[in-house]
Design a protein around this nucleic acid. Sequence first.
DNA 1: TAATTCGTTGACCTTAGTGTCAACATTTCA
DNA 2: TGAAATGTTGACACTAAGGTCAACGAATTA
Lengths: 228, 228
Amino acid sequence: MTSSSKNYKTGKIRIDNLAKILEAAEIEFALSGYKGASIMSIAKRAKLPRPNIHYYFPSKLELYNRVLMDVLALWNEAFDRITADDDPADAIGAYIYAKVMYSKTNPLASKIFANELIHGAAHLTEYLNQDYREWLMGKAEVMQSWINQGKMDPVDPFYLILLIWSSTQHYADFSVQVTTVLGKQELADEDYEGIAANLQHIILKGCGIKFEQSLIGAKPYAAITKPT
Amino acid sequence: MTSSSKNYKTGKIRIDNLAKILEAAEIEFALSGYKGASIMSIAKRAKLPRPNIHYYFPSKLELYNRVLMDVLALWNEAFDRITADDDPADAIGAYIYAKVMYSKTNPLASKIFANELIHGAAHLTEYLNQDYREWLMGKAEVMQSWINQGKMDPVDPFYLILLIWSSTQHYADFSVQVTTVLGKQELADEDYEGIAANLQHIILKGCGIKFEQSLIGAKPYAAITKPT
DNA sequence: TAATTCGTTGACCTTAGTGTCAACATTTCA
DNA sequence: TGAAATGTTGACACTAAGGTCAACGAATTA
């Protein structure tokens, strides 16, 4: 695994192939889930012969775990602003916006994560019990302090965070539902802006947080087109 | 399939076994997805020999489709109040409540549905394009009329419906996330009441809908316990 | 260029899973 | 009771998939 013993350096081939495999695997796992994705399908997508995958990853499970870890790393990096000193409207508004955009740019990671959760999150219990839990409790405390200062309604911070999480994540995980129902091939940039604006309005106002003029209402509603 | 030719009636055995199989299949498909569930696992859960499953369902796919159809039937039945004459607060409030309770009582159906959506909803395009789309457009129109009457803010009805959908569904689909993070084995009845109350408060208020006194704020926040 | 490590790949093994079938068992009804 | 329909089940065939291996090829460094 580690570039072993005497140093035959560069390892350019290795780096290239690892990248190809990981990218292909991310797509396949997101599309089909762990069981549904086969090493063959990953190999084809990466344009490598199947045994070659095993050269880099001894087993499917190890490959999957690696993909999952990469996803979690990205996750942890991504959402960390929000402190008690912030203005709730700015902080929560920005968080909602960032998360919607993350659904737009990173739907695969989101789907892999969601798939894990739906099926019991066997590979995630550690993460959920530690990093995620800690992160969430931290944010909940911040919100509780805002509530104590009378800056927002006494909603339950946990449920609020889960509300933001679910309503934004939705556009990555269940994109098919959204596009099919709206009769579009995929969501455009304006759509995501509209989604963010609507969620910001409803959630901020719903929590009794004062904020500058809302951006919603420009169009009647999500331009719906005929089914294809 | 249909109780064939000359009528040897009752068919009690058939009815019993079909019920056993469908129940077991629902659980297995929800836990493991289509690919992940095996006929063997379904047979074991139904306490029937494996070939017996094939006696009732020629193929795994047909069994899966049957389970999916049953889920959709339940779905369509379940959420149909809400008309333009209703009071928005009552209608949306009741809808949110019903949907949270549905997540509590029917998590399996929800998971199977979510799983389909995440993986492209190959078996659902027809449903999404027709029944679901129609249902959603109907509700969107009602909300638009409320908006036109000044009964609520000009939020985008589609995004609002998806918001309600995702935030309630979440407690069925991603129950593991919720319970793990809250450090509970499973959510209690009060938890669901609290979830519904919080969602009602945030969403109704967020849409500028007037409503009677909110139920939130009774407890500090979701009683979190030590991880197990 | 020779030695060494890294990378590739066809062929094979094994297992798990789906679906089939024919023989047998049970139930139903005349 | 006996014939017809329904239901049960062990054994088998076939395939897809994961994983192994040894022989070969390519790159790197001395």
